[in-house]
């Protein structure tokens, strides 16, 4: 039962994730992202982590993708009107892909991924909270800081300064 569900959900998640990237229509892509997130939430439920599943839906499916759609609707996304890739973009994506591949490679080659003992895996809220505020406090803060950097970057990029303003 749960194996079949796992296969269905993972196929759904991966297929829709691929469609997000391959789709020309931005609204379709956003909707596939939504479906992908729902599939992911389903996988979390299968892992006995309903809390994570619902947080995922609440934050990503409920708010983030909605904001994506909001932005997509406000932009003019007629297909075929996108500018061609600049050399800089290509370089950046190659670099990003290389880094990702390197990370995956090093993980699969060298890292040992111990399965967590069953007792810890009882996903009560208390466990989540304790882990977040003790063991993983630093990663959480770092991730939050990275999000802040991304946000500031967007503000800087989107705000066009005129020479008078910069004086």
């Amino acid at each position: 039962m749960s194996d079949t569900l796992f296969i269905i959900l993972s196929v759904l998640t991966v297929a829709t994730a691929l469609l997000v990237v391959l789709n020309k229509n931005a609204v379709n892509a956003a909707m596939f992202l939504l479906l992908s997130l729902v599939g992911l939430a389903g996988l979390f439920v299968l892992l006995d982590a309903p809390l994570l599943a619902f947080v995922l839906i609440l934050v990503y499916a409920g708010a983030v993708v909605a904001l994506f759609l909001f932005i997509i609707m406000l932009l003019d996304t007629t297909p075929g009107r996108f500018p061609a890739f600049k050399p800089m973009t290509i370089a950046a994506s190659v670099l990003g892909a290389a880094l990702l591949a390197l990370g995956i490679l090093s993980l699969s080659e060298r890292a040992v991924l111990p399965l967590p003992p069953k007792a810890v895996a009882v996903p009560t809220m208390k466990n989540y909270a304790e882990q977040l505020f003790t063991t993983y406090l630093l990663p959480v803060q770092v991730v939050g800081f990275m999000l802040l950097i991304a946000m500031l970057g967007v503000i800087v990029l989107s705000k066009k300064y005129t020479p008078e303003e910069t004086k």
Partner: peptide, 25 residues
Amino acid sequence: NLDVGILAVFAVSSLGVYALILAGW
């Protein structure tokens, strides 16, 4: 009977916004 109760309500009802966005779009 989920022990994440209120979170489930918030999470699923937050999906209601898609109906409005999609209908409008």
